[in-house]
């Protein structure tokens, strides 16, 4: 039997004593799924995403990523998972301001220990795939928000991860640009079977996903196909 990519059981998270932000979260996500997470502001979506991305740890319960209990991994093992299994796309793009687009995209490969030539070749390929091939030497602040988000997507994809976590990736973009970005996600999911988990406030954006999880007050409210 093929194990699910993600399996969350009885997950709790609290920042302050006795104020749980996530309460008894349970779900599984199979490889290749495209999941949207929605919910009111403050309902705990980002908190959940950070735990799924191994950036933060749960207070109680288990999170199995490819069958590994993430609670038992040390910081180096978690860094390795983030590097080669997970790609992040943030609302605020989070590109390094002093590095060129190519250097930004190649950075995960640097931490993966790839050679300079390999890093550059792969970064160029990814930049071309998001349609910005000629802009490689520019700095992030010389791009529009939509362009920056494409670069961030290229960076998330550069290590060929199995899982993309996107926390409000279109939150800072207009409708048309948002549609363009969502097309890229759809293509990735359809063509390369990359699992995508996406947080959004906009129902239109959520319709691009195939499954919708609603979070309410730190608990799963509903979980159904779109």
């Amino acid at each position: 039997m093929i194990r699910p990519l993600i399996c969350v059981t009885g997950l709790y998270k609290q920042y302050l004593a006795n104020v749980p932000v996530l309460k008894d979260i349970n779900f599984t996500i199979e490889g290749g799924e495209f999941v949207a997470i929605m919910g009111h502001s403050g309902s705990g979506k980002s908190t959940l995403m950070n735990i799924l991305g191994c950036l933060d740890t749960a207070t109680a319960g288990h999170y199995y990523l490819e069958d590994r209990d993430t609670a038992t991994l040390n910081s180096d093992e978690l860094a390795l998972l983030r590097n080669n299994l997970i790609g992040f796309v943030f609302q605020g793009f989070n590109l390094l301001p002093r590095s060129s687009l190519l250097d930004n995209i190649a950075l995960p490969l640097l931490y993966a220990g790839k050679s300079k030539a390999a890093r550059r070749a792969k970064a160029l390929e990814m930049l071309g795939r998001v349609g910005l091939a000629e802009l490689g030497e520019r700095l992030p602040n010389q791009l529009s928000g939509g362009q920056q988000q494409r670069v961030a997507i290229a960076r998330a994809l550069v290590t060929d991860p199995k899982l993309i976590l996107a926390d409000e990736p279109t939150g800072n973009l207009d409708t048309q640009t948002s549609e363009d970005i969502m097309k890229i996600f759809e293509t990735m999911n359809a063509e390369r079977k990359i699992t995508i988990i996406l947080v959004t406030h906009e129902p239109d954006i959520a319709t691009h996903a195939k499954r919708l999880i609603r979070v309410k007050d730190g608990q799963i409210d509903s979980d159904k196909p779109t």
């Binding site: 950036l55 180096d76 860094a79 983030r82 989070n94």
Partner: peptide, 16 residues
């Protein structure tokens, strides 16, 4: 600090 966070998110180990 934020740059460090970004680097960690994309796979930098503490040693890096």
């Amino acid at each position: 600090t934020r740059e460090i966070g970004i680097r960690m998110a994309i796979g930098a180990k503490n040693r890096d």
